[in-house]
Amino acid sequence: MIHRILNHSVDKKGHVHYLIKWRDLPYDQASWESEDVEIQDYDLFKQSYWNHR
């Protein structure tokens, strides 16, 4: 379960990846995930991330 999205990056092919802080895990366990991976409520977290940038 996502706690929040910390950052994003765009690779050379134009694909967006998000650095995800996972609920109940420390920050050093955050991981980069592609924008099209199937994660519960991912779209809501991405929308919230962009609304607050």
Rank of each mutant, 00 (worst) to 15 (best):
E35C: 04
K21G: 05
G14F: 04
W32E: 04
Q29W: 06
H15V: 12
D41E: 07
R53Q: 14
L6S: 02
D43N: 11
S9K: 15
Y27P: 14
I5Y: 00
E35H: 03
Y42C: 10
D43A: 10
D36A: 07
V10W: 06
V10C: 06
L25W: 06
W32D: 02
L44I: 14
I20D: 01
Q29S: 09
H17A: 10
Y49G: 02
K46I: 07
Y18L: 01
I2R: 04
E33A: 12
R23Y: 11
Y49N: 02
I20K: 01
K46M: 02
R23L: 10
S9P: 03
G14E: 00
P26N: 10
R23M: 09
H17S: 11
L6E: 01
D11V: 00
W22S: 02
V16W: 04
I20V: 09
I20G: 03
K46F: 01
R53G: 10
G14P: 04
R4G: 07
I5Q: 05
E35G: 10
G14R: 03
H8W: 01
R4F: 06
H17W: 09
V10D: 05
Y18M: 00
E38Y: 08
I2G: 03
E38L: 10
L6D: 01
D24S: 09
S34W: 02
W22F: 02
H15R: 14
D28W: 08
R4Q: 10
W32V: 04
P26G: 13
H15Q: 13
I5H: 04
A30I: 15
S34D: 09
L25Y: 09
I39P: 01
Y49P: 05
Q40V: 12
R4H: 12
W32F: 00
Q47P: 03
S34F: 05
K13H: 13
I39D: 00
K12C: 14
S34H: 15
Q47M: 07
Q47H: 13
R53N: 09
N7V: 04
D28L: 06
Y42V: 14
R4L: 10
L6P: 05
Y18I: 00
W22A: 01
A30G: 00
M1R: 09
H8M: 02
D41S: 07
W50H: 03
L19E: 03
H52R: 14
M1Y: 15
E33D: 00
I2W: 02
I5T: 01
D36Q: 08
I39L: 14
I39V: 04
H17Q: 12
Y27Q: 15
V16C: 10
S48H: 15
E33M: 15
L6R: 02
H15A: 12
H3T: 09
K21Y: 08
D36S: 13
Q29G: 05
D24A: 08
H52F: 12
L25G: 08
S9N: 07
E38F: 12
S31G: 01
N51T: 14
L25N: 11
K46W: 02
D41F: 09
S9D: 08
I5D: 00
L44E: 10
R23K: 14
I2C: 05
K12N: 13
N51D: 14
R53C: 12
Y42L: 05
V16I: 13
G14Y: 05
Y27M: 10
D24K: 07
L19D: 04
S31T: 14
H3E: 15
Y27W: 11
K12P: 13
H17P: 01
N7D: 14
H8I: 05
S34N: 11
V16E: 06
D24T: 09
H52N: 14
D28E: 14
S34M: 07
I20T: 01
M1S: 10
K21T: 00
H3I: 00
W50P: 02
W32M: 02
L25F: 10
K12R: 10
A30V: 06
W32N: 03
D11L: 01
F45S: 07
D36P: 01
K12V: 11
D36N: 15
I5R: 02
K21W: 10
H3W: 10
P26R: 06
S9M: 12
K13V: 09
R23E: 09
K12H: 14
N51G: 11
Q47C: 07
S48L: 14
Y49M: 04
Q40C: 13
K46P: 01
H8F: 01
H52T: 15
D28T: 12
H3N: 09
Q47K: 15
G14I: 05
Y49C: 00
D28I: 05
P26D: 11
H52L: 13
D11C: 08
N7P: 01
Y42K: 03
Y27L: 15
W22E: 02
Y18D: 00
V16L: 12
W22M: 07
V16N: 00
I39C: 04
L25H: 10
M1C: 10
G14D: 04
N7A: 13
M1F: 14
W32P: 03
V16S: 04
H17E: 10
S31N: 05
D36V: 02
V10Y: 15
K21D: 02
L19S: 04
N7R: 09
F45H: 15
K12M: 14
N51K: 11
I2E: 06
D11T: 06
Q40A: 13
M1H: 07
Q40P: 13
S31V: 05
N51F: 12
Y49T: 01
F45C: 09
G14V: 01
R53A: 10
S34P: 13
Y42S: 04
D41T: 01
A30L: 02
D43P: 08
D24H: 11
L19C: 00
H8T: 03
S48W: 08
E33T: 12
I20R: 04
L25A: 09
I2P: 03
S31C: 06
